[in-house]
């Protein structure tokens, strides 16, 4: 088993709503939404973990908490076996970087690509005044952009090229872990493929560890070594990609995989049951999936299931009826 570079233990992130003065005076508890609610996740060095789930399941919040954009509300995070708090050192920040979804809002429109890279390279002393230009050129080559791109503003690029710039910005800090939050979801199919390939190459060549967050299950399967399935703030199933896809255990994973349209000729979509995606609540009684679950029993209403090992394989799921 390889070393764990980043691990979360019982991690949670609650968003606390604004409170009125009167509410405060009356001692009322502010509204708290547990977007991430007790997540355990380990990222083995050099692996790509795919994080899937539907909107509102907390997968983006989890990514942003791991990268340090949101302070966590509970649980712990360790980076290379060292606990890290909500106030990260520059070293710790550098080690975990993010690639964002929207190729338009993720680049400062008033800064040339070269200036943007130089700023962070110089700030972190990853290059000096003489070598910074050379390093910028290297980064452009790394992400497959022409050197002339350094002199241009973000608006002069297409969506796919902007995503490459965003990747170059993350790589400039020489991170160990990349968190790709829906990094290809806004792109056309043909461009999507080239960015997915680029990320896979970079991960291999630079020895990165990657968390690939996406609602697109087909892409996640393509890039990931391991899969984590999230539902209402919890990870409900986790394991090797081949294991989870070929032998899904949790009823939600089964529903999710059955709902994905397939490319196989003659395929007809599985029978998706009726039911809506519930919104996150402050508290749950029992299992969060019971309202949509086809195999729910009375025990599900009282027991909050924990992740348990499935057989002898590298695969775990959180369901009491397995």
């Amino acid at each position: 088993m390889s070393d764990i570079v980043l691990s979360a233990s019982n991690l949670s992130k609650h968003f606390v709503g604004k409170q009125s003065l009167i509410g405060k005076l009356r001692g009322k508890e502010p509204l708290s939404v547990p977007a991430v609610d007790g997540v355990d996740l380990s990222m083995p060095a050099g692996s790509t973990i795919g994080l899937v789930g539907e909107s509102g399941c907390g997968k983006s919040t989890l990514g942003r908490t791991l990268v340090g954009l949101y302070p966590s509300s509970g649980g712990s995070l360790s980076l290379f076996d060292r606990q890290i708090g909500n106030d990260r050192s520059l070293e710790e920040r550098r080690a975990v970087q993010m690639i964002f979804q929207d190729p338009y809002s993720s680049l400062n429109p008033r800064m040339k690509v070269g200036d943007m890279l130089e700023e962070i390279l110089l700030f972190h002393k990853l290059a000096d005044k003489e070598s910074v230009q050379k390093r910028c050129v290297e980064l452009m080559e790394l992400v497959g952009l022409p050197v002339t791109a350094l002199q241009a503003y973000p608006r002069q690029f297409s969506g796919g090229q902007r995503q490459r710039i965003g990747i170059a910005r993350a790589l400039a800090l020489e991170p160990k872990i990349l968190i790709a939050d829906e990094a290809v979801s806004a792109l056309d199919v043909s461009v999507q493929a080239s960015i997915v390939n680029l990320l896979q190459d970079l991960k291999r060549d630079l020895g990165l560890t990657m968390l690939f967050i996406s609602h697109n299950i087909a892409i996640v399967r393509q890039v990931s070594d391991r899969i984590a399935v999230m539902y209402l703030g919890r990870i409900v199933e986790e394991g090797l990609t081949s294991e989870v896809f070929n032998n899904p255990q949790h009823p939600y994973t089964k529903l999710l995989l059955g709902s994905v349209p397939k490319m196989t000729p003659g395929s007809k979509l599985g029978a998706a049951p009726q039911g809506e995606l519930p919104t996150i609540q402050a508290r749950y009684e029992g299992c969060r999936f019971q309202s949509r679950c086809p195999i729910a029993t009375s025990a599900c209403a009282t027991t909050d299931p924990a992740l348990i090992q499935i057989g002898s394989k590298d695969h775990q799921a959180a369901c009491i009826n397995l």
Binding site: R94, M98, S106, N108, R169, A170
Partner: peptide
Amino acid sequence: ELDYVHAAKLSGLPTSRILRKHVLPN
């Protein structure tokens, strides 16, 4: 709340610089 400001935060830049170079011009 835009991602380029998030990215600037993630790269560890000091707040004064983020405000001056990334927020103010926009």
